[in-house]
């Protein structure tokens, strides 16, 4: 199901192509997305809705890059031979900061009280793109009820960033369909396959409920919070992209 299978299946016959990211020449296999190719080359493109092992979705738009002058979402856009990709420019950083800010302001992201703090990808993106100028976006402060019906798992969609990773993990990895999108526009959110979470067949072993799947604190495991001390949490030690950037060191 995953794109990684698809591309590896084609690897033998597929042509190797080259393209540039921020002026640096990189190799790719035809059929890869720009993000896959960049990952392989050890160039980190910031992302939220994409997660290794899941089909890419292209919804958060944080991974937007410019290809030959045109903005595209790098997680879904195929790389072409000779493409000139811009990734880390002031303009694109500005877009990404706006997008991350939009997500922060759309939901209730109260880091000091959130169990996901320190391993939250949205927070990590915030740290990455932070500036000290006061932000002008309004806070939408949603008040959706929290679904605490399930004995082990809790759902607070006020923190949902609509990345759909739980939806894809449940569908494609767990072979279930615990989550799905409901509503549209600003009211779009993750819904569950039942009147509430306790009426679904989710369980703690599901990839949909795995800590890595929800990038924020929307899907929370009960009785499991603040398990690492501040300073020793996942992204305190290794912010997103660390592993990818290490590849570059290795290949050189």
């Amino acid at each position: 199901m995953s794109r990684h299978h698809e591309s590896s299946g084609q690897e033998d016959s597929a042509a190797r192509i080259s393209f540039t990211i921020d002026g640096e020449t990189c190799a790719a296999i035809a059929g890869q997305t720009i993000m896959e190719a960049a990952d392989g080359a050890g160039v980190y493109i910031p992302r939220l809705c994409d997660e290794e092992g899941l089909d890419p979705q292209g919804s958060c738009r944080v991974c937007t890059v410019k290809v030959n002058g045109r903005p595209v979402a790098s997680c879904v856009h195929p790389v072409g031979a000779g493409d000139v990709v811009e990734n880390d420019t002031a303009e694109i950083r500005g877009w990404r900061r706006d997008l991350v800010r939009m997500l922060f302001h759309e939901g209730n992201h109260l880091c000091p009280i959130c169990e996901a703090s320190g391993r939250c990808e949205l927070q990590a993106m915030g740290h990455r793109f932070e500036t000290f100028e006061a932000d002008l976006f309004p806070y939408l402060q949603p008040v959706r009820p929290v679904d605490a019906s399930h004995p082990d798992i809790m759902l607070d969609t006020n923190r949902c960033i609509r990345c759909g990773r739980c939806i894809r993990a449940s569908r494609d990895l767990d072979g279930k369909h615990v989550f799905g999108y409901v509503g549209r526009g600003i009211n779009k959110r993750v819904g569950v396959n039942g009147i509430d979470l306790s009426h679904t067949d989710i369980d703690l072993d599901d990839m949909a409920a795995a800590l890595e799947t929800c990038p924020v604190g929307c899907i929370i495991r009960k009785r499991l919070g603040f398990f690492s001390p501040i300073g020793r949490r996942l992204f305190d030690m290794t912010p997103p992209g660390t592993a990818i950037q290490k590849r570059k060191g290795n290949s050189k």
């Binding site: 302001h105 960033i161 609509r162």
Partner: peptide, 21 residues
């Protein structure tokens, strides 16, 4: 545009609300 946005991507879903505000 806010009413009719499908909500799939961040900029359209959230950004248009901020424009209107």
């Amino acid at each position: 545009f806010i009413d009719e946005s499908c909500g799939y991507c961040t900029p359209c879903r959230v950004g248009s609300v901020f424009l209107r505000e």
